[in-house]
Amino acid sequence: MADMMKQASQFIQALPHAKALGMELEELDSGTAAISMPYSEDIIGDPDTGVVHGGAVSALLDTCCGAAVMSHPSNPAGTATIDLRIEYLRAATPGQRIKARATCYHVTRSVAFVRATAMDEDEEVPVAMATGTFTAGNGK
């Protein structure tokens, strides 16, 4: 398991966009993943409040969903997003780290079904929730 974490962690570090946003893998288990991202002035979307842009949260959720698919016991060779819907429940508090947690509920021969949430330090209400479908397996 520690080995799998290390490998997955290196994998995420090898994704240039994930690296640019400072993403770090926190947990990985069969079909679930947790990835966090630090607050940074570069990703501010609302200059009046300093709240991060929804797009950066999308990138975090997308990466986390992909990691959950890859860690699924069906062991898909690769994955790509087919569709991702994000709901923004509230503004993330400026200055706080955002952590996403994704679960891959089912994988067919070609499709993986995933849900994820993004939280800041206040874990009562998520910042955002995501529902996505991803490709799974070798076929396109």
Partner: peptide, 27 residues
């Protein structure tokens, strides 16, 4: 630019970068 890549093997744009780009355009 390289920082937008999600899959370095293909290479392909990161799905998150694509989502962000479209959201920025909408806003």
């Amino acid at each position: 630019k390289d920082e937008l890549i999600g899959n370095p093997l293909l290479p392909a744009l990161h799905g998150g970068a694509t989502a962000a780009f479209l959201e920025v355009t909408a806003i």
